[in-house]
Design a protein around this nucleic acid. Structure first.
Lengths: 136, 136
DNA sequence: CCATAATATATCGGCTGCCGATATATATCG
DNA sequence: CGATATATATCGGCAGCCGATATATTATGG
């Protein structure tokens, strides 16, 4: 049941839609604003993602409006979409935490990134079983 | 300056190497163990990633050993690799946090995810059936 | 008044990157 | 003796991201 991880672009779109329905161009702006300009979703990426997410039932077309002569096509998350986004966020947080923990472990065991060229080069003892760090 | 986000596979490899040098097959096992079997890095993915990370200077060949007739090629993170992993972990945590926050926001503003239709602002075309929901 | 930018949609070709399949070799276990 | 685990590596197919491009309307600035 553990759905496989979604793409980054899909994650960004779902995040942008998490608080309220938005139209394509609005999603683009929202993603950029949300990350303070650091992350940006490209126009060429957007529509393919929108189609895939719709096909997967994670988003649906909410409504269409004509604002000042321009068509706006609003999408919103389905319950499944919310669940998928939530699960992905969980996975990402777990992954980020695991990475941070292990970086700290590595620092403890030889700061200069050099595992201390001690013993005679050649055959080394098998690595001791590390204490589980756990992703989750 | 803001290095662009790395791929998921690259992130997994760097994480596996964060605490100590490991060889290819060991990375594979470590990734799986680390995520409790949920995430797994495929063999066909590994070597390409290893090459790319080496080319990018994020990892280096640490040493080679022959254990029981089998070659083991150990890789380790460079300082740059540690920094890149750390930055990526930060980005992921931020993204995960943003998603979580927004999901909560969406819940606050009308659980059924159905925004109310307004009158004057725009000409609406289709409005798919759904449960009525209060949203301003 | 016209050029440019912003808003808003969408498509397409190229390139990158992930994965399944496959190949090779040794050691161990039943 | 065959299956499994360890350990390396390559290749072709396919999915997905991105730059470029197209189209149309409105707002802004020179």
């Amino acid at each position: 049941m553990t759905a496989k991880s979604m793409t980054r672009a899909a994650f960004l779109v779902l995040t942008a839609l998490a608080d309220q329905p938005r139209h394509g161009y609005g999603i683009l702006r929202e993603v950029e604003e949300l990350s303070d300009g650091e992350v940006q979703l490209r126009v060429g990426t957007l529509y393919g993602v929108l189609d895939r997410l719709t096909a997967d039932g994670l988003i649906v077309l909410d409504r269409e409006e004509v604002q000042q002569g321009r068509l706006r096509r609003y999408y919103r998350l389905t319950d499944e979409g919310v669940a998928a986004l939530d699960a992905e966020a969980e996975r990402m947080a777990a992954g980020a935490g695991a990475a941070k923990r292990r970086i700290a472990e590595g620092r403890r065991a030889g700061t200069p990134a050099r595992p201390a060229a001690d013993g005679p080069a050649g055959l080394e003892l098998p690595t001791p079983p590390g204490l589980a760090g756990g992703y989750a």
